[in-house]
Design a protein around this nucleic acid. Structure first.
Lengths: 153, 153
DNA sequence: ATTTTGGTTCTCTTTTTACAGAACTAACAA
DNA sequence: TTGTTAGTTCTGTAAAAAGAGAACCAAAAT
């Protein structure tokens, strides 16, 4: 496969988007490549060739993506290459992980509220509000998926 | 104010939590300090003293936090110091920003779906699912706040 | 008028990140 | 058995991030 200018540019933009989320540049670009690749899966050296980066960088990035459960590989009989692809099927899990990541602040709010002496201050009241909301939201996630399912069926 | 060991350690943990979200170390620690500080507000040189960092670092971090609308300062009559504090009151806005940040991937999914040739593949179907869900979720946010409000009143 | 305060900005240094390149390894192939 | 393929790991390095320290500045105090 050869990338069009438009595809290259889209990969870059997907790359920087993921950089902003704290991923290292190449990781974001690999995600982009996997999204736009015609076969929806790429081999190790396709990544090397198409993105023009070193094998070591690709190896590390793929290890990372597999550890984060964002990518898996399959193999084909009589072919030693690995075919890496996004676990897009698991979008619910990934989305949930992202949400959990932001809701996690609640844990610290609770600790802070525990530690503070001015429990009945406006400041603490607002923290409690936020904390309660996060708690509420966390429990709402499953029902969110359900309501979505109901709507689209 | 002088920080207890427990408070120091909590600030550190809140700091690394925010680092993981892509903020620079000191920024996260300042958030931590503002959360645990008895007065819920800190002056410039309290930050310098309590966290043991340079004025320049504090100045930059505070500029950043104000630009991101996470912090404001107030002043007191006959006192030139600025009293910086978290805009914890705006937790809804901040939370929404975080959510929008993760939902933003939808924009790229749409572009990718536009660009791909295999529209009726399993891969595209899953992307559409996810994309539709994100769209759905985005519209659900206000109702989420409402349902929370209803529950706690 | 000059000193102090509260903070900003500039330059330099340290540390960390992100990656290249080469050496290496395990499985298979000739 | 030697070579090739597919990837990993190790070592070095360029670039970027994070912050220190000093110079600087404006407003207020003396």
């Amino acid at each position: 496969m050869v990338l069009s200018e438009k595809q290259k540019e889209l990969i870059e933009r997907i790359g920087v988007f993921h950089e902003h989320k704290g991923m290292q540049p190449l990781v974001g670009r690999i995600i982009g490549l996997m999204l736009i690749h015609d076969n929806a899966e790429v081999t190790f050296d396709e990544i090397v060739d198409l993105l023009g980066v070193s094998k070591s960088a690709v190896s590390n990035a793929l290890t990372f993506l597999q550890a984060k459960e964002r990518v898996v590989y399959t193999t084909k009989p009589g072919d030693r290459k690995r075919y890496f692809k996004l676990k897009i099927h698991d979008w619910k899990e990934n989305f949930t992980k992202d949400i959990v990541g932001i809701v996690e602040i609640q844990k610290f709010l609770a600790e802070v509220l525990e530690e503070r002496k001015d429990k009945d201050s406006e400041f603490c009241a607002q923290m409690r509000d936020f904390s309660n909301f996060l708690e509420f939201f966390r429990h709402e996630i499953p029902s969110l998926f359900e309501r979505f399912k109901k709507k689209y069926s």
